[in-house]
Design a protein around this nucleic acid. Structure first.
Lengths: 217, 217
DNA sequence: GATAGTTTTAAACGAATGTTTAAAACACTC
DNA sequence: GAGTGTTTTAAACATTCGTTTAAAACTATC
């Protein structure tokens, strides 16, 4: 089976990228862990950049697909008896559940996605960010639009900033999840997992979303 | 003046590290921008790792010193007439102001610090994180203790998680500030700066801190 | 102004990286 | 089963990196 090579590369790359970052993982460690030849990456993906893109696309494609369905279900169930606060948390929960479902179904690492977004935004030039927004921006517009409705008092610019503050909670927590879970286990003797973290984060994000606008912006 | 070489290296390294990350910036680009010889880095700082440490120490040393003074002033002014909400925002504002003052006085880049913390937590092994906590953990304990008092209903573990969610807002926003400010200017034709961002973030962090604890943790 | 210690310089080193090459192995069709 | 296109393999390639070296330049002391 020819796709076995491709899949083994993607699986190994995903793990290595998530734990050591994109720049710090070499193609040699990936191909060694995948038990394929070094040249296989360039043969199948063209370049290392192509591999990174393939790894993230393999995650984002089913995620956007899943999110689309869940958001449609959500909208068709409106109006419901939920309060504004409950509805906001439910909406944020949909994003979280979408991620979790895709992770579980395809055995992906959520940390790699968080890390990707992290590095995408940290780069000032932002080639990666542009690729993400161009490729998947439209798919997330629906979610953004629904979230926007829960912050009607804001201007578009205020919503832009607030959204990225919320994104910061998610991205930092998840991309640091390995370290945080390890610290938690060592310090508090309690073994947590990513699902519990997500459930814990959602009300925090909801509160942050509803924070009053009293800054200078 | 011999320190001119050291300072020029630190200045150039700070800018390059902040904009391109630690791994992606080479000593050659740093020494070229600093207009010093390539070997100067290893001569004065021992290694690249030593340079990274020196860059961050140059920021964190005055920051912890500044923070110590401001927190003492804050405590000696207690009790005051402020509400819980106001006091929490004031406390968070102290941290923000400390950062801003150190940045302005020493012409540092706050992005480098945020990026440092970001990479420190993203690495699963976490050598950098251990260095930061060992070197400066005690200095920030005072702040943590005061912040802890505003979340009395939480267990220590709950506070641990909540604190890192708050940290996520700061670290992601600041380390992405270059990209976000550029997008803001392009999309909304408004030129913002880091000070405005900080003022905008504080009430968001305060709300996130006060969010109810209804997760599974 | 000679001397000792410090800093700077140009060059090279060894290791690691992504990529390319060309032959070998394989898979499939007729 | 020969022939054709695809995949895998081992080796080499060209760069780039952090680091080291040894001589040169500089600074300060007596």
């Amino acid at each position: 089976m020819t796709s076995s090579t491709i899949d083994r590369i993607l699986d190994a790359a995903e793990v290595e990228f998530a734990t050591h970052g994109f720049v710090e993982t070499s193609l040699r460690t990936i191909t060694t862990k995948a038990k394929v030849n070094l040249a296989a990456v360039n043969y199948h993906f063209g370049s290392k950049k192509g591999l990174i893109q393939a790894v993230t696309d393999r995650f984002l494609d089913p995620l956007t697909q899943n999110l689309k369905i869940q958001l449609s279900d959500y909208e068709s169930s409106l109006p419901n008896g939920r309060s504004d606060e409950q509805e906001l948390q439910h909406l944020l929960g949909i994003l979280a559940r979408s991620c979790q479902q895709v992770v579980q179904q395809n055995h992906h690492s959520l940390a790699i996605l968080a890390r990707l977004i992290n590095t995408a935004y940290s780069q000032s030039q932002g080639h990666l960010r542009k690729h993400l927004t161009q490729q998947y921006g439209a798919s997330f517009m629906h979610f953004m639009k629904l979230l926007r409705q829960h912050m009607p008092a804001m201007t578009n610019e205020q919503f832009f900033w607030r959204f990225h503050y919320l994104l910061g909670v998610l991205v930092f927590s998840i991309s640091s999840s390995d370290a945080l879970l390890a610290i938690c286990e060592r310090e508090y003797k309690t073994i947590r997992n990513l699902d519990q973290m997500m459930a814990d984060i959602i009300p925090v994000m909801a509160s942050a979303a509803q924070a009053p606008i009293i800054g200078e912006i």
